[in-house]
Design a protein around this nucleic acid. Structure first.
Lengths: 160, 160
DNA sequence: TATGAAAGACATCATGT
DNA sequence: ACATGATGTCTTTCATA
């Protein structure tokens, strides 16, 4: 798993901005022959440095309101149950299209990123689908009001 | 800004999985003529439904450890300063390559997603670059231990 | 690994149903 | 919305260094 050199990184940066650039365009931009660019990209894909090519969906399809939710699960008397509780909650959340991201933090905390059309719908969703989950100790909701970095993330995660 | 029909959505789903599919491959997969697929994709791009084409970076380039950090900013005596404090913190964080995502929640809370090579480096980064920020009321760190949905997000956000 | 050249595949566009 | 064909461009491969 050798390192990336400057040419590799330059190619990756260009493709990240626009993966539809043709090999000839990249070649011209970087002042290298097409065959070299072709070879490098082939290697980057083989090595898994490029996982895959994808599209980013635009604002039209992105939820207008997003919120981060942090769930703390009640510790049961029988300790072994905790992991099952948490996994069950994560599985349940993962299946909902409004839920863009789900992760566990520590043993008893679940973090989810939610998105919906409007603030009202989002709040309703939280009331009906999140706060009704059994065995919760606490639910903290953080609406994302102003995203400064990584905003496009939602266009990447949203399902179509 | 008309609606998407089933064909549009099918195309988007295929491109999301692999944006290097040729028009002929998509046409065959969906049992439609190439000219139709070509036309639809053109329209999807024109409308901005497809924001742009991009690549997802593989595990080699992704930070191994990620954590969500929730910062609460101390409310100053002069209320107007709060927004400046918060904006300043967001700007500062945004410039760091370890910081993958930054958003504001409410008036006094900043949410950031951090990533680094190892747990130690990540913790050091938090101690040195986060907890040292002025005017913080609280800092909560949630290491993301097990991501159930949206894991690829990091490969999308990471810089190269 | 890098390059140049050549062959084949592809997107694109125009025209017509 | 679909079919077809003409055009120029791009990718891919291979031989060579």
């Amino acid at each position: 798993m050798m390192q990336l050199d400057d040419l590799d990184r330059a190619i990756l940066r260009l493709l990240k901005k626009d993966a539809r650039l043709t090999i000839s365009e990249i070649a011209e931009e970087l002042g290298r022959p097409e065959s070299t660019i072709h070879f490098r990209i082939k290697k980057l894909i083989e090595r898994g440095v490029i996982d895959h090519y994808t599209i980013l969906l635009g604002p039209e399809l992105r939820p207008k309101k997003t919120a981060l939710v942090i769930l703390q699960v009640e510790t049961p008397i029988i300790e072994d149950f905790l992991e099952r509780y948490v996994n069950h909650i994560m599985r349940t959340l993962s299946m909902l299209p409004n839920v863009l991201f789900v992760a566990k933090s520590g043993k008893d905390t679940v973090i989810a990123l939610l998105g919906d059309e409007t603030e009202e719908k989002l709040n309703a969703f939280i009331e009906e689908n999140i706060k009704t989950l059994p065995t919760l100790k606490s639910v903290n909701v953080y609406p994302l009001d102003d995203v400064k970095k990584g905003e496009e993330l939602v266009g990447f995660l949203v399902e179509v």
